[in-house]
């Protein structure tokens, strides 16, 4: 029993079909409970009711980065071991990542307006998120531009690799370029001033919920891609016959 067995599309379809209802249920329960719980938390004495936005902002931002990392790993697996499911999973993940980045940016803008008095600031964190969004757009555009599926998988995987290096580079370059307005990580273990437990537990729940939400969307989208691929193969066979 090895993890590479799931590289077989049939096996992947069977297993993902079996676990999908559980993942979807978990995602729905965690996200809805987390968001409702978050919405009912008391106001922060400094930020007022805007603190409720954190339950969307932080999980979305976290997933935006994690999804890119997941795409990088999937691209590497495709390049090294040539498992088609891996390439399709990377393709399926990109739009989810782009939407998560967009949610992070929008909630950040709406939150920044009353707190900092501006919708947008060229702050390192904000800027690097915008750059990440650009990388997502380029990646998705490249996938949709190339017709041959295997070439598309190869080229996007190479782009993902190079893009990861440059996205990381840009992240540190913008720190050099402008000092920030954005607060530091609210949940890091080292930081002295930590979030109060009132906010922390619903936040953990929404983070888990967004993770499960991503997983369920990823499974569904990958299944869609596999079905499309199989359909194309069947149609090609029919044409030849």
């Amino acid at each position: 029993m090895s993890i590479w067995e799931y590289a077989n599309p049939v096996k992947f379809m069977r297993t993902s079909g079996a676990i999908l209802p559980w993942v979807v249920a978990g995602a729905a329960v965690c996200t809805v409970t987390g968001l409702v719980w978050g919405f009912l938390t008391p106001d922060d004495f400094r930020q007022g009711s805007t603190v409720k936005i954190v339950f969307l902002h932080v999980p979305a931002a976290m997933m935006a980065i994690n999804i890119w990392v997941m795409m990088l790993v999937a691209s590497l697996i495709w390049l090294i071991r040539r498992h088609h499911v891996s390439a399709l999973a990377a393709k399926a993940a990109a739009p989810i990542g782009a939407v998560m980045t967009l949610i992070g940016l929008i909630t950040g803008a709406v939150w920044g307006q009353p707190m900092w008095g501006t919708w947008w600031e060229w702050d390192p964190r904000l800027t690097s998120f915008l750059i990440l969004f650009l990388f997502y757009i380029g990646y998705i555009a490249l996938w949709s531009a190339i017709e041959d599926p295997d070439s598309a998988a190869d080229l996007t995987a190479v782009l993902c690799l190079v893009g990861s290096v440059f996205a990381l580079l840009s992240r540190y370059a913008v720190f050099f370029w402008n000092q920030g307005l954005h607060q530091g990580a609210s949940l890091s273990v080292q930081s002295g001033e930590r979030m109060s437990a009132v906010y922390r537990y619903p936040l953990y729940l929404t983070m888990l919920g967004f993770g499960l939400l991503f997983l369920s969307l990823l499974l569904i989208r990958t299944r869609t891609e596999i079905r499309r691929r199989r359909l194309a193969a069947l149609q090609a066979r029919e044409m030849r016959a």
């Binding site: 805007t50 409720k52 967009l102 709406v110």
Partner: peptide, 16 residues
Amino acid sequence: YAGAVIGAYGLSLALL
């Protein structure tokens, strides 16, 4: 801040 909070939730949920 009702507008900001509802706007953020509304836009995000619409996107999702």
